[in-house]
């Protein structure tokens, strides 16, 4: 039986998101160009939350989209077919600053796939990356611009992000699971 360690509670997640929103605002003077795109599934809820916070900071709504990257993965014939979720980008990505949002940054392969998927929809002026947890073990030259927390992990460990909107039971929590 493995271990499941709580590493972040609701208050900690909220504080991290508040800080990340301010960092995104600080890095983007042209706030009207910025759109957030959450990576299905974990990143979508986080993108919505960050957009709400940014809307308060900037005083105008911030567009949010959801991106499914499963069609652009590089391991499709090495595993069972992944579940495909809808991609919903209700704005033109051309010439925008797109902030990709994911819950956990690991190998970097999801982000590579996300950038390919995004390029199929248009040519953003700039792509930035925000992740709640960076657990290391990159297999590609990819680095996040905005990080909630760096969590050094062993390869066989897992990070589980639970958000109140999606089956978190009204609480946010991040767990480290050891086999």
């Amino acid at each position: 039986m493995g271990q499941r360690i709580l590493i972040l509670n609701t208050a900690a997640v909220q504080r991290m998101l508040a800080r990340m929103a301010h960092e995104i605002a600080e890095a983007n003077e042209e706030s009207g160009r910025v759109a957030l795109v959450g990576i299905q599934r974990g990143g979508v809820t986080l993108a919505r939350r960050l957009a709400e916070r940014l809307a308060m900071i900037w005083g105008h709504p911030v567009p949010v989209g959801a991106l499914d990257v499963s069609l652009h993965r590089d391991d499709l014939d090495q595993r069972l077919a992944p579940e495909v979720h809808p991609t919903l980008i209700p704005f033109d990505v051309n010439d925008r600053t797109v902030v990709l949002v994911d819950d956990v940054l690991f190998s970097g392969r999801t982000i590579r796939a996300a950038m390919d998927a995004l390029n199929d929809l248009g040519r953003p002026r700039r792509i930035q990356l925000a992740t709640l947890i960076d657990r290391g073990h990159r297999e590609l030259p990819i680095k996040a611009d905005f990080v909630g927390k760096n969590v050094p992990t062993a390869l066989e460990e897992r990070i589980e992000v639970c958000l109140s909107e999606v089956g978190g039971g009204g609480e946010d929590a991040v767990f480290l699971e050891r086999p």
Binding site: G42, D77, A81
Partner: peptide
Amino acid sequence: MAVLFLVNGGRGPQEVIAA
């Protein structure tokens, strides 16, 4: 497209993406 995509899947376990 869905059928081609699904049968292309390999035999390995369906692990959770990016976790």
